[in-house]
């Protein structure tokens, strides 16, 4: 039941993101100063914002920006976490020590503060927001992958493969990655909502997409001066964020219930 709701919500969001150019009734950046702050009508289903842009179209395009950002964060965190965690676990020695101390160091700073710092070092913009969030979250994944790799390395079938002459790369590819994949998928699905909230928060602070772009966080920021006259300009983009995070969290819960009850205490 939970799985079905989660999957249909995520599918709906993905479809909206992919089909944005075709289903959005207006150009999300098209301003029309004569028709500013309109209430919902037949022409503009959800009304218009302070520059006369169609709210529905901007919400639809915002799906694309938000899901895109989360997808890239997911890819970056998973690949960095897997590569570094595997390297630490399989190579051991100095590599292990250096990588894990580095991971510990990244984990000593609050994630949002660390992300803010990286944006300061790299510059603002959505790309850098995504990189900053990935940089502040890879360490948890590297630690998990390393732990799993170490326990696998001691397993009989891996020892047998090593005795049979398999290289470390072979072992990583054939024995470690497939076994680690399921656990990583669960952990990642639990974090998707958390990343989404980070993206929205940093974008709300004005560090993400530059003003004409449509993204939910910056839409809320843009609408602040008109909060009392047109609260829907803030309520609806926020509801879109909430819906997306709910979808991700449902997906995460379902994945955890199904695959790994042991991860139930995950910190985020």
């Amino acid at each position: 039941m939970k799985v079905r709701i989660a999957l249909s919500l995520v599918a709906l969001l993905l479809a909206t993101a992919l089909l944005a150019p075709w289903i959005a009734p207006f150009d999300p950046g098209e301003t029309d100063l004569v028709h500013r702050l309109l209430p919902p009508s037949a022409g503009h289903w959800l009304g218009t914002d302070h520059l006369g842009r169609d709210l529905l179209s901007r919400l639809i395009w915002g799906t694309r920006a938000s899901l895109g950002a989360v997808a890239v964060i997911l890819a970056l965190v998973l690949s960095a976490g897997t590569a570094l965690g595997c390297a630490a676990g399989l190579l051991g020695g100095v590599v292990d020590t250096v990588l894990m101390r580095l991971a510990d160091a990244f984990m000593t700073v609050p994630t949002l503060v660390l992300a803010l710092f990286f944006i300061g070092a790299l510059g603002t913009g959505m790309t850098n927001v995504v990189i900053a969030i990935a940089l502040s979250h890879w360490a948890w994944y590297a630690r998990l992958v390393r732990g799993l790799t170490l326990s696998l390395r001691a397993a009989d079938h891996v020892a047998a493969a090593r005795v049979a002459g398999a290289s470390r790369l072979d072992i990583a590819r054939r024995h470690v990655l497939p076994a680690v994949g399921g656990q990583l998928a669960v952990l990642a699905s639990l974090d998707l909502g958390h990343w989404m909230l980070h993206v929205a928060g940093l974008s709300f602070l004005g560090l993400g997409i530059a003003p004409p772009g449509a993204e939910w966080g910056i839409m809320i920021n843009d609408a602040r001066p008109f909060f009392r006259v047109a609260p829907m300009l803030i309520v609806l983009p926020g509801a879109a964020i909430l819906l997306t995070v709910v979808a991700f969290n449902l997906l995460g819960d379902a994945a955890r219930d199904r695959l790994d009850p042991a991860l139930a205490g995950h910190a985020h």
């Binding site: 909502g193 928060g201 809320i220 609260p231 803030i234 926020g238 909430l242 995070v245």
Partner: peptide, 18 residues
């Protein structure tokens, strides 16, 4: 709890003000 872990804090702030 389910809603609470999914809500953006800054948006909740606006709703509370509203």
């Amino acid at each position: 709890v389910f809603l609470g872990v999914s809500v953006p804090n800054f948006w909740l702030g606006f709703l509370l003000v509203l």
